[in-house]
C-alpha cells in the first residue's frame, strides 16, 4: 500500500469518526433538552398532597392520606385505629405514599412517624 493510499484510508476513517461524533452530539442535545423540560415539568406540578391529588389517588390510599392530613403526623398504628384497617396494611399504604413523594417518614426511637411535607423540609403542619 502506498503512502498516498494509506493517507486516503485514514482520512475516510477520520471522516466517519467525525460523522459518528456529530450524530452522537445531536442525540446528546436531544436528551439534555428532554431532561431540561422534564425537570421544568416537575417544578410546575410538584408532589403536593392537596385536595386535587387526594381526588386522584386510588380509594385505599386516599383514606390513608386524608387521615394523615387530619392528624398532621401519625404512626401506622394511629392511622389504623382511625381507618379500622390492619396496622400492616396502613404501614404499606403509608410507605407507598412516601415513595410517591406525598408524605415524609421520620423514625423517632422505635416509632416511625409519617407527615405531610408542607414546606419541602419543614416537618410538620404549621399550628394555628
Amino acid at each position: 500500500m502506498t503512502v498516498r493510499k494509506l493517507e486516503g484510508t485514514h482520512t475516510r476513517l477520520l471522516q466517519k469518526i467525525k460523522e459518528s461524533l456529530d450524530r452522537l452530539n445531536d442525540k446528546m442535545e436531544v436528551i439534555i433538552e428532554l431532561q431540561k423540560h422534564s425537570s421544568e415539568a416537575n417544578v410546575e406540578i410538584p408532589d403536593v398532597l392537596d385536595v386535587m391529588t387526594l381526588l386522584s389517588l386510588p380509594d385505599h390510599l386516599r383514606k390513608t392520606a386524608i387521615t394523615i392530613c387530619k392528624f398532621e403526623q401519625a404512626t401506622a398504628e394511629e392511622v389504623a385505629e382511625q381507618t379500622k384497617r390492619a396496622r400492616a396494611v396502613e404501614s404499606s399504604y403509608l410507605n407507598q405514599l412516601v415513595m410517591m413523594g406525598y408524605l415524609k417518614k421520620e423514625r423517632r426511637g422505635r416509632k416511625a412517624y409519617f407527615f405531610v411535607d408542607k414546606d419541602g423540609g419543614n416537618k410538620t403542619w404549621q399550628k394555628s
Binding site: V48, D50, V116, K118, Q126, S128
Partner: peptide
Amino acid sequence: DRKWEMKALGRLLSLK
C-alpha cells in the same frame, strides 16, 4: 398555588 391550598386544608382541618 397548590402548596398554599394544601396548607389551607391543614388550617381548616385544625379548626376541629
